[in-house]
Design a protein around this nucleic acid. Structure first.
Lengths: 169, 169
DNA sequence: GCCGTGGGTCTGTTCACTGAACCCAAACGC
DNA sequence: GCGTTTGGGTTCAGTGAACAGACCCACGGC
């Protein structure tokens, strides 16, 4: 995107959008929250050109949203996983999911507090425990079968805890 | 943006980003929440090329985020104001503001519940009343002087209720 | 009539997104 | 050993969006 910055805007919103406002970036963060960690899995699940994915992951590493670690099972490969700053983007993703669910198309997933199983409300809080759990304390499961059929989509059909790594295909 | 859609993504997040994921769009919605309604005011406050602003406003009207009404004071001009779907983007804006505040730069504004004056917490709820007020029930005021000096920025230096129209320059 | 202003549209340049091709190192089949 | 596949990229040309600036038209003031 030409000029991804918003120089003149003295505003925290503009600063946040400079990091996550580019095309694909929030979808990558969403997948990372779902537990995707391998380059190939992102690519398979997002249908994103490799050059763009590579650039976005580098940018997210530079911006401190994601850490790049060597993959212990495969020399020369990497695992990308969210930093605390990345995990703290969950409220952003969740509020967009809620809005899209209400005004565009029904959601395909439900999110519930891992501690008690209660579905989260629109503000991301557990109505039972009165807390706003972070992603590592949330279970998600699909509401319906989606149209995708890649290895990541297949793993995500089973209920699982957010941030839990998706198994290798 | 070439291909603003995310066809293969069967997900409410992708649908939401198809509406508000383009450059400038969320900043326009932010200004609309602050009470900006005139084409010229958006342009002055955002430093956005007129062609882009025109395109974005048309897109937002098409997507049902904004209504275009004739300006009763100036024949031939329009006022853009948020629909309910647009006002419901407030949680998205707020969560991005909170994230940008924490990880990028300190916020320049504070938001408080109009009913009781209590500042909102990070989830957008009023800790005193235990409700999540909509934008028409929120007061905002600047925390510090910003670097901008256009007519809209000057009006926004005074505390005011969100969605209240900014006065004509 | 003339000028200034609001709200655009048009134009040419720059630059990001895209798919396809290419590359290299490691793992695998035999 | 050797050829092939796979992962994780980089490079390339084509396309279309973003941008600044020029232009345009309707209205109001004088």
């Amino acid at each position: 995107m030409l000029g991804k910055d918003y120089e003149g805007q003295d505003c925290a919103l503009a600063r946040a959008l400079e990091v996550v406002g580019e095309r694909w970036t929030l979808l990558i963060v969403r997948d990372a929250l779902y537990g995707v960690r391998r380059f190939n899995d992102f690519q398979a699940h997002l249908d994103i050109p490799k050059a763009i994915l590579s650039g976005r992951l580098n940018g997210l590493v530079d911006d401190g949203i994601v850490d790049r670690l060597p993959d212990p099972d495969h020399r020369g490969r990497h695992l990308y996983h969210l930093t605390q700053a990345g995990k703290d983007l969950w409220p952003v993703i969740h509020s967009l999911l809620v809005w899209g669910d209400r005004y565009r198309e029904g959601s395909c997933r439900v999110f519930q507090h891992a501690g008690c199983g209660t579905p989260l409300d629109d503000r991301g809080t557990c109505p039972h425990c009165k807390v706003a759990p972070g992603p590592d304390d949330i279970l998600t499961k699909p509401l319906r079968r989606t149209s995708r059929d890649d290895p990541v989509a297949r793993s995500l059909r089973r209920p699982h805890r957010m941030l839990d790594p998706v198994p290798e295909a």
